[in-house]
């Protein structure tokens, strides 16, 4: 059995947040005694990630995804519990560890704003102590994979959001990290750019066998890249397993798409009609009744086509969160 690249056990992060009532009296009171509140951002979570896995880390805003990623990247000191990545304790921030991982934050710019990305890449070469030949080969490979072209010669501030994200990713991977923490890498990008980045991550994982932990609010990212997902809410893990099992476990219904010969048939008695367009209809049916309803439709009407599908992954995730409330 291979050793886990990421090992997390009972990992917890509690933030102390200052808090006071509004008004002058409360302000004066706070001068003497400062009130704080504990926010349990991550509560005793545990999981392991094997070498080369691409895992989706899902949850609503404030669920604890980014906090977990930051603890694994060594940016945050855990309150308790254990985290090990590539055999290192991230909070010790050992240089040998930092050379083997990277974290890309979709909403943050880590390249120098005023100069062309090529100059920032050169600086990263020096920071990561890369041999020039290796650096040039890796840089050219990444530039080609992401189709960055001459964008690297423009000052970063003159690039569009999508272009900036691509050069950010090139800069973050020049040292060929073995572990990638990607925090919303496609946030704010158009559909074409999202697809490009997804393809790139898959290609990088395939070429270099890197392990990837990815957060994204775009289910297309997760469906395209991750066989396994970890769902977190209120700092606790709700699900950890194959993406394909998520719907089985949490979806309470399936959808039946039906194409009828007679577009005037009344369908309300079969289930909730989500949409109706003449002879085409989509019904939402409780999971346990799907087979029976499908059989009834086929026997009672002239059906030209019928499909049974799991609900969209966005809906399943919403159900997971709803069930945890």
């Amino acid at each position: 059995m291979s050793e886990s690249v990421v090992h997390v056990s009972e990992l917890t992060k509690v933030f102390k947040v200052p808090e006071r009532e509004p008004g002058l009296r409360a302000a004066a009171k706070a001068l003497i005694r400062r009130q704080t509140r504990e926010v349990h951002a991550v509560e005793a979570i545990s999981f392991d990630i094997e070498p080369g896995e691409v895992v989706g880390f899902l949850g609503p805003n404030g669920a604890g995804k980014t906090t977990t990623l930051k603890m694994l990247a060594g940016l945050l000191y855990p309150t308790s519990g254990e985290a090990r990545v590539l055999g290192h304790v991230p909070s010790r921030r050992e240089k040998d560890y930092l050379r083997r991982m990277t974290m890309v934050m979709g909403n943050r710019n880590q390249l120098q704003w005023d100069i062309p990305a090529l100059d920032s890449f050169e600086l990263n070469r020096a920071i990561y102590r890369l041999r020039r030949d290796d650096y040039l080969a890796m840089r050219d490979e990444l530039v080609e994979l992401l189709d960055v072209g001459d964008l690297v010669r423009k000052p970063v501030r003159n690039l569009s959001l999508g272009e900036r994200m691509k050069v950010e990713i090139v800069g973050s991977l020049l040292h060929r990290p073995m572990v990638l923490f990607l925090d919303e890498p496609t946030i704010g990008l158009d559909v074409t750019m999202q697809k490009r980045i997804r393809t790139f991550v898959a290609e990088y994982n395939e070429r270099h066998g890197a392990t990837v932990l990815l957060t994204s609010h775009y289910m297309a990212d997760v469906e395209a890249l991750c066989k396994r997902v970890i769902v977190i809410h209120h700092g606790q893990i709700l699900f950890d397993g194959a993406l394909s099992h998520l719907a089985n476990e949490f979806a309470a219904y399936k959808t039946i798409g039906v194409l009828l010969e007679d577009g005037n048939v009344e369908l309300d008695g079969y289930g909730e009609v989500i949409s109706r367009d003449g002879d085409r209809a989509i019904l939402r049916i409780p999971k346990a009744e799907t087979s029976r309803v499908a059989a009834r439709l086929l026997s009672e009407h002239q059906v030209l086509d019928l499909t049974i599908e799991e609900p969209p992954i966005e809906d399943v995730i919403e159900m997971v969160f709803a069930q945890s409330r």
């Binding site: 070498p51 080369g52 050379r99 083997r100 020096a126 920071i127 990561y128 102590r129 890369l130 041999r131 290796d134 650096y135 080969a137 890796m138 490979e141 040292h175 060929r176 990290p177 073995m178 070429r207 270099h208 066998g209 890197a210 392990t211």
Partner: peptide
């Protein structure tokens, strides 16, 4: 193609600091 799951090799420490 480059070797799998391994970071690029690094230069010597002092030379790297001067280079940085």
């Amino acid at each position: 193609m480059s070797s799998r799951a391994a970071p690029l090799p690094e230069e010597g420490r002092l030379r790297s600091l001067v280079d940085f």
